[in-house]
Design a protein around this nucleic acid. Sequence first.
DNA 1: GACCAGGCACATC
DNA 2: GATGTGCATGGT
Length: 226
Amino acid sequence: MKAYLMNSKRLGEIYNLLYQHFGPQGWWPGESTEEIILGAILTQNTSWGNVEKALAQLKGNNCLDFEKIYDLDTALFAEMIRPAGYYNIKAKRVKNFVQWLYDQYAGQLGRLESVSTDLLRNQLLSVNGIGKETADSILLYGLGRAVFVVDTYTSRVLVRHNLIDDQCDYEQIREFMESNTEENVQLYNEFHALLVCVGKQFCKPRCLCSKCPLDSIPHASLDNIA
DNA sequence: GACCAGGCACATC
DNA sequence: GATGTGCATGGT
């Protein structure tokens, strides 16, 4: 059997186990595209609980809105998102994104619909503060494009279960996921959310947790755990 | 008090 | 190209 068939079969098993255990995740948590995009930037190296606090503050100040943010003083915006951590740098990053949206698309998210995914991804990556994971989160969860999002949890779970080498970089992991699964926005959405879910609960950095729903999937030895 | 959390850019070698 | 560092709050 060819490698890609084996990998797609294994990924299928993993997806089914996770889906059976956790159920549909219905990501991204957020009521609007703007909230999803803000969440994607605010969650950089930050726990989601802290992001929720920051989003709640924005909501309370009626600032979950790119037009408002565009006009808002950066220092003032930074104060509102303080609970998310790295608030000064994240305030600049959000402003950079909004500035890009205004410069290129008159501030209208609707205008992104006619742009190809590849072009959009490259444009997002050119914004200072938007890296690969953030760009792909925006594309998949915010804009409904079929791009697999790779994050710490995705990588960790795949490495632990010997699906990828721990030296794989972002693009290699994304390529691995996209080439071994059906190209489908809803599948990418659920699969990534489920990987985060199992990662949070059962795949801590320094331990091999038991009772993981993926226990039946071949597992790396402790020696291989960073 | 240490460790971790849904990264990214930049400096330095 | 690889490696190290700053950015910061809040939960466990």
